[in-house]
Amino acid sequence: MGDVTILKIGNNIIVPIQTELHDNAARELQTEILRRIERTGVKGLLIDVSAVNIVDSFLGRLLVETAKMVRLMGTETVLVGMKKEVVLTLIQLGLKMQDLHTALNIEDGLALLETMVSNRFLQGRSHAKFKTE
């Protein structure tokens, strides 16, 4: 349940998912994240899934929806560290997660968040990674 830590570092919230979440726990985590953003007003959310072995259609959809909700609140989301087996499975499953921004690791993820947040007003929702100086 409350096993997942939500860390606030600077202007970002970092959520490392370390356990296998069952459906209700995942829903609770979503609510918890949204509440924290409401309370703290951070501009970036980073979800680390490098310890997650299984992302099925439920969890996949929940992650995409969380990012959408968070964006409505004026915050950007980056998902980092997805395992290659998980990626291949999601692709085979046919789950579309295109709207979700991703990075290889936390470091890259934080850098991406920074550019996304600072370019938000200039570029709207176009791909922040393809900014030209």
């Binding site: 992302v55 439920f58 087996e85 499975t89 499953l93």
Partner: peptide, 15 residues
């Protein structure tokens, strides 16, 4: 990879 695929399928069917 096979483990991940099948466990995901099991998750879908169990749900």
């Amino acid at each position: 990879l096979a483990q991940t695929r099948i466990v995901t399928a099991v998750s879908e069917l169990a749900r």
